[in-house]
Amino acid sequence: MLKYIVKRLLIGMLTLFILATITFFGVRAMPGEPFTQDNKVMSAETYAALEKKYGLDKPVGEQYVIYLKNALHGDFGESISKKGQQVSDIIIQRAPVTAKLGVVAFFIAIFVGLALGIVSALSKSRFVNGLITTLATLGVSIPGFLFAMITMIFFAVKLGWLPIVGLDSWKHYILPSIAMALSSISMITRLSRSSLKDVMDKDYITLARSKGTKEIWVIIKHGLKNALLPVITYCGPMFAGLITGSMVIETLFTIPGIGKEFTNSITNRDYTLVMGLTLFFGAIVIVMNLISDIVAALVDPRIKIGK
């Protein structure tokens, strides 16, 4: 088990290192200068001073080493478009907003997805099954941002029940978190439905029933426990989906989170911020993947032997 974790950890660190390298050289290869915004004429001295300030006067190789060293300490440099603000400060300031929304979306996805999956796996009714399958298909096919826009029109503009800007009260969470969770709900419904269906046909379920166990315990203790594995492994990719989702949902609902910051930094060509946020997102997704894989391996020892 320890060997497995160490191996995964090393691969994760390698991935992060490669991402950092790609980001660094990618940003260097981008057209346009970071300091020539607003078409202002800049004297040669100011330009040189600015280059010196951001370390751009050194050779690329040296810049790269310095960048990696600093990034290792969590120092991503100073934002270019927001003068005087450290990238790491921006992350610390904005990340909690996204995290709150993300956690709400995460739990909505897990609970609603599992509930729908369980109901459709156990229900014999063709109507219920058809309805849930249709919902799951729609959920996968309708992009979250369009769903968000449609629900905005209905519940906020037409009916006026829910607010659409910001993230102040619990009411503000409803629309964005559901839109963010939409595709994950559908995926979890599909995953848990098919795995629970498989499990419920197994011999040990029949055995548990024949021993007189109450049906509800058969489902929870013997069925669900064994059917959860695909859902656990899905949690890693789900975080990736939530993070990319936050970019558009936060822009749409004007939520001052890290996803909105990322899209803004791209529009502003704020290279240091783009680099810092890319690394931050990458690191989070890698860590979440790692956690979900480790949990899956803990739950089901067959996994690490299989790999």
Partner: peptide, 15 residues
Amino acid sequence: YAVPSLLYTVLILMI
């Protein structure tokens, strides 16, 4: 694959 593909996509679009 370990990193959300959108990050790469965005980088390439910027370049």
